[in-house]
Design a protein around this nucleic acid. Structure first.
Lengths: 345, 345
DNA sequence: CTTGTTTTTTGGATCGTTCCAAAATATTTA
DNA sequence: TAAATATTTTGGAACGATCCAAAAAACAAG
């Protein structure tokens, strides 16, 4: 069909030099004279030559490809994370395989295998729910740098970059307590993720600190999505001594809770205080603007990619664990001090 | 650092056969006897062999990689589009380079160049704003199948897959007219994209059909994002004879408009009717649930990927233009018939 | 036990680069 | 100008797979 694409020897022939010389020109070696460099470059442009990176990779047994596996691209937190990675990966001259595991460990395993066959220089993984450290053991053992982001993988001997979930949750709950709330719920998420565990711990400790008894019924599990938030709220309103505020697992859940409140004739931020987690872009413009814990997903993506590239370039495999700091961004959804709210009741 | 990875000859040596035999086993050829197949497979498993697809690609001068370039991954429409593509690409045994152009034609050019060097079998492109047909001409000329999605690229000789923007916009405006609205705005988007042009044309024709005069001041440009929607609404409320309804360029803008209305003490769906475009996942659960034109981005992604794979496999480069049909999904944001609204005024 | 068939296996060339030692050319020095 | 040195250029061997023609082994028939 398509005639074989033009290669380095075609150029060499056209320019009347050897293929080695052309190769030298391509890698901008200072060993070639200015005259031949120009001559060769002219022919490269004329023949529309396209560098075959695969062949180079084969010879050098290394590549300029990094793999990125994300558990849920439709969640804007992860989409932004991916965009942040993309930025630094691209400007470092790398190209990325980006795959979406959809929270399936099977699919995750498949795509990682496929990436290995294609020869990635490193991998950034935001693990699907239920991923075990053993799932990436042989990858890491093979000497390919791996950076795990967002969700911790206890026991895995790789670098990790997670946000300070514990501190963030604690700060959020302290803020709610400071506003006068005493019955505070924790909404969204499932037991089995590290993120959930860490944030819940922060929530519990903040309550304990204020000598508030944390009741189990105030911890409401649900899918970590907008729809999950709606569902969680439906369960919340049925409990007696209904909480007056909630920390949500993430912003998506928080938005869902807002939706649910409205559907029940309650006004988020007025009759119920809400704090999210992540600070996705919509958090700022939503109505009411969402009080949340800012984790800067794009920045995290950038840092993760930088960490990976550093490991690729240095050749050292020693693991590094970074916990990125977070900060409370107070907006409207957590309302005014609770005295006003109590009056309404 | 890392000892050279085990190759086909290592296996051959271990199993006491030739590398050709191992190759045959790898590609599940029926020519090898059952006995040797098992023996070889045992050694493959034992040595932890990883297939080097790059080497195979070099020899065969073809690859199992498709490139996907998306203009804005943080927009959930495109994120879902990418997920749809990912699904079919992955299950066809391909792997995808996914890049985010961030609406920059320069970056888009760079990533496409990089993908070509890495040897992609085909490309799916959702063009950045301002992309010209000439930008992908030589790619298409080189015989690599290209599918352009979402935004039309007039003049490009490649297959395209776009949703029926014209019909969708028309249906939406007809619906608003049917509810009794007469002053209807078109909000969001910029002049220079094909999508904007097509939807605006649908809007105009529907108004004309009903003998309603379309005034230019009812067409409000803004960024096609949530923030853009907020900004657009701020401008809308200043005009005299304020419209009672709006068709928004997309759901993101529509959500922004809702936010803006609330910030101005107006209630979306009650005092102002809104219709979006795209039907992103949040549209259903938002409050009020968004009336919108459903385009099923994930399905579009799947169809685009299927179209590309078909071209890759068949080797035929004849272009195909698919316009996917859309449908109006009526929810709460467009409110009840306008008589009630007029009474409020 | 040959010969003829069929089934398996195999060596070497190949894909497009990079790398290296060695060759060719240019430049300097005595 | 010849020798010594510095600068450029080059051929061929890798890298790890596939492909193909041909060899080897297994089997059948006479």
């Amino acid at each position: 069909m398509n005639r074989t694409r033009t290669s380095i020897v075609d150029i060499a022939r056209a320019a009347g030099v050897s293929k080695s010389t052309v190769s030298l020109v391509l890698q901008k070696s200072p060993l070639v004279s200015e005259a031949t460099r120009e001559k060769v470059n002219a022919h490269i442009a004329e023949l529309g030559y396209i560098y075959n990176r695969g062949a180079a990779n084969l010879r050098q047994s290394k590549s300029k490809i990094v793999g990125i596996v994300v558990n849920d691209l439709t969640n804007s937190f992860f989409a932004e994370l991916a965009v942040g990675m993309d930025m630094v990966v691209q400007s470092a001259g790398y190209v990325q395989f980006l795959a979406h595991s959809g929270e399936s460990v099977d699919r995750q395993r498949e795509v990682i295998a496929s990436m290995r066959e294609n020869g990635i220089a490193g991998l950034i993984l935001s693990p699907a729910r239920g991923t075990k450290a053993s799932d990436i053991k042989d990858l890491a053992d093979s000497g390919i740098p791996v950076v795990v982001v967002v969700r911790n993988l206890p026991g895995a001997k790789v670098s990790t970059l997670v946000s300070d979930n514990y501190a963030g949750a604690k700060a959020a709950v302290r803020h709610l307590i400071g506003l006068g709330h005493r019955r505070i719920a924790f909404m969204g998420g499932f037991q089995d993720t590290a993120v959930f565990g860490e944030r819940l711990r922060g929530y519990r400790d903040a309550l304990q600190e204020a000598a508030i008894l944390a009741t189990e019924k105030c911890i409401i599990h649900s899918a970590p999505s907008r729809a999950g938030g709606v569902a969680a709220l439906e369960r919340l309103i049925t409990i007696e001594d209904r909480p007056t505020a909630a920390l949500c697992l993430n912003d998506a859940v928080a938005f869902g809770v807002c939706d649910g409140l409205r559907a029940n004739g309650l006004e988020p931020g007025k009759s119920f205080a809400i704090i999210g987690f992540d600070d996705v872009i919509e958090a700022k413009t939503a109505v009411p603007a969402l009080t949340t814990i800012s984790v800067d997903p794009q920045g995290m993506g950038q840092r993760a990619a930088q960490l990976l590239l550093k490991q690729i370039n240095s050749g050292q495999r020693d693991q590094e664990s970074i916990v990125t700091s977070v900060r409370l961004v107070v907006r409207q959804s957590c309302g005014a001090p609770v005295k006003q709210l109590e009056e309404i009741e």
